[in-house]
């Protein structure tokens, strides 16, 4: 589904990603872990071309998205992105957040867009809030609406960039439950997370990154119980006390 080959990215002289190689199969859930500044988020943003790679290839669903002639806007509808800070459209209601992309990008009719938005909002448990302003929602509710907004575009892949890091602890669960449900339904996901228990439970594979390189890539049980790389060991011993 996603194939990344020799991906490089630098901000000015600061090398953020160096020679990343990674494959994500269809319906696979891959969690990216690592200290902040290790390049996890940048890698994720490269897959959506919010950051333009300096070199290397990213092939998604058989198309080389790093090709300069590639239609990025059409591609982005197939790849949903969930942000740490939710980034809901603050001037719109809950339902309009979910319909605006369908109407303006996918050119669906108002009725159809509304129906799809309702289905997805119900799925994330926000069916009772459709006409509220997003400003009145709690963090957990906002993130669930953001997930519904991404789902409305019928993505083949969902990219989640620390989806629970900006949430109060009591709201983390409700968002993770939604993500788990999506994983069970077979949506391909690439998740940057600091929630190790979530990674253990949901991920098919866990990738540990440090200083812009993939240090270790294995099943969650191997990574968490039997890490091979020294840097992985050091990181996990700091995280899991």
């Amino acid at each position: 589904m996603i194939t990344i080959r020799h991906l490089n990215k630098a901000f000015d002289t600061n090398i953020v990603l160096s020679d990343i190689n990674l494959d994500v199969a269809e319906k696979e859930v891959v969690c990216l872990i690592g200290a902040s500044g290790s390049g996890k988020s940048t890698l994720l943003r490269c897959v959506n071309m919010l950051e333009i790679p300096d070199g290397g290839q990213i092939i998604v669903d058989g198309e080389e998205i790093t090709d300069s002639k590639f239609d990025i806007n059409k591609y982005r509808t197939k790849v949903g992105m969930i942000f740490q800070q939710f980034n809901l459209f603050n001037h719109l209601s809950v339902i309009s957040n979910c319909t605006i992309g369908q109407e303006k990008v996918l050119k669906r009719s108002k009725e159809q867009a509304k129906q799809i938005a309702l289905e997805n909002l119900k799925k994330v448990g926000m069916g009772d809030f459709i006409n509220q302003s997003v400003k009145t929602l709690s963090g957990g509710q906002k993130q669930r609406v953001a997930i519904a907004r991404a789902l409305c575009m019928n993505p083949k892949v969902l990219l989640l960039d620390e989806p629970t890091s900006a949430l109060d602890p009591e709201m983390v669960g409700e968002v993770l439950d939604v993500i788990k449900q999506l994983a069970l339904e077979g949506l391909t996901m690439l998740v940057v997370t600091h929630e190790m228990s979530f990674a253990k439970e949901v991920a098919d594979r866990v990738i540990f990154m440090d200083q812009g390189v993939v240090c270790e890539m294995d099943t969650p049980s191997n990574i968490f119980t039997n890490p091979k790389n020294d840097r992985t060991k050091a990181f996990l011993s700091r995280i899991l006390r």
């Binding site: 806007n73 509808t77 992105m81 459209f89």
Partner: peptide, 12 residues
């Protein structure tokens, strides 16, 4: 993030 979110759902 507002602009990024808009672009991320495929808006020009």
């Amino acid at each position: 993030g507002q602009y990024e979110a808009a672009r991320s759902i495929g808006m020009k």
